[in-house]
Amino acid sequence: MKLKLFLLTLLISPNLFAARICEDYITDEWPDHRYQIDSVSEVVTDMGTGLMWKRCSEGLSGGNCEIGVASTHGIGNALAIPAAINSTTGFAGHADWRLPNIEELRSIAAINCYRPAINEIAFPNTRSDLFWSSSPINFNDSNGWNINFSHGTDIPDNSGFNVLVRLVRTAD
């Protein structure tokens, strides 16, 4: 079954390197119709949580997040990114962007799939890698919480590590 799905995914995928694999027997709580996409403004609204996300990881842009290189940051710099955007140009007409907390970031991890565990229509060109949350860690004070979008699991990471960033805001 897995092999069959894998081969089918290869067949229907325009990009052989982005061969996300999904399992039909695991409930898909992250179907396309959950996400209201604005590809011009490069934002997507999650109709489940009411959160508006930047479709692209920081460093990327374009309707398919195909322009640029995904950038990685330590937690101090990662938290400064939305602050800088909000105090200057804003993004998509909004000036209340922030780093998601760990539960918000978990809400877009589509765990019926892996490599990457995310809806790629809503969030194109997402690396199967670590993303920062804004949540520090109680039991290790040099760590913060990440979600690994390879499988959608949370993981503590050293605050100095350079990790990917995706911004969120509470939709109106």
């Binding site: 330590g74 938290l79 602050a83 539960e103 918000e104 804004s134 949540s135 520090p136 004070d141 913060g144």
Partner: peptide
Amino acid sequence: NLNDTGIIWAGNILTGNSSTCISDIAADQD
């Protein structure tokens, strides 16, 4: 609705958690 995390204190840039929501990171966090 999502629950919040229960975290009411701030982390520092590299090491150390504060007992309050003030740390050496100027930007807002959890």
